[in-house]
Write a protein that binds this DNA or RNA. Sequence first.
DNA 1: TCGCAATATTACGATATCGCGATATGAAAG
DNA 2: CTTTCATATCGCGATATCGTAATATTGCGA
Lengths: 100, 100
Amino acid sequence: MDYTIQHLQKTSEMLKTLGHPERLCIVTRLARQGSFNVAALQDCMSLPQSTVSTHLQKLRAAGIVEARRQGLEVTYSLKNEQVKQIVELLFQSTEGKKHE
Amino acid sequence: MDYTIQHLQKTSEMLKTLGHPERLCIVTRLARQGSFNVAALQDCMSLPQSTVSTHLQKLRAAGIVEARRQGLEVTYSLKNEQVKQIVELLFQSTEGKKHE
DNA sequence: TCGCAATATTACGATATCGCGATATGAAAG
DNA sequence: CTTTCATATCGCGATATCGTAATATTGCGA
């Protein structure tokens, strides 16, 4: 286990970045669909382009997603497996505890 | 999988709360040690009492920890298993591709 | 070259979160 | 009752993050 201050800081920054409804929504979509470009994202979320782009840059700065340019479009995808695992952990529904 | 807005909001609030170095540190300690009171926490972190207490209240409000009073002291512990799993995921060291 | 489409960056007021001293509360003891 | 210990809450200036319009950049085709 790695409890150094550096790792703690980097990790908390990642969590803070994930801790925003719109950004978390983006990440869950990426976890499901693999990847997409910014335009597709603007469609399903009704936010102005600059807002979406800014969120993506923050996710990128935190090491959560990565960008790949193909011509005019930029495709985003999850950068590391950890985030995917966390999302799966957080969003698996009540299966396994069938009360409620 | 549960991608409702409510769950997304609650989850992102939890992640935001975890996304702070001191609070994440508290949570990793709880994951390792099980529980402790506020005084013990003030010792190992060099922060004023009010700061520590405020962090604990935020963790409590986000559903991450729970408090139990025993006389004068209050003992904190992790409230749900998910958080523990996330912490384990995040802090296993860099050669962590081995089996558990 | 120019112009357009897709995306990124900048700028800035609004809002939220920060740390922490001061103060309040709650429980046990006297 | 009062004191004292452990913890919680309040108040507030400092700092950070918010959303988004405006502007800049990048890549492609004409």
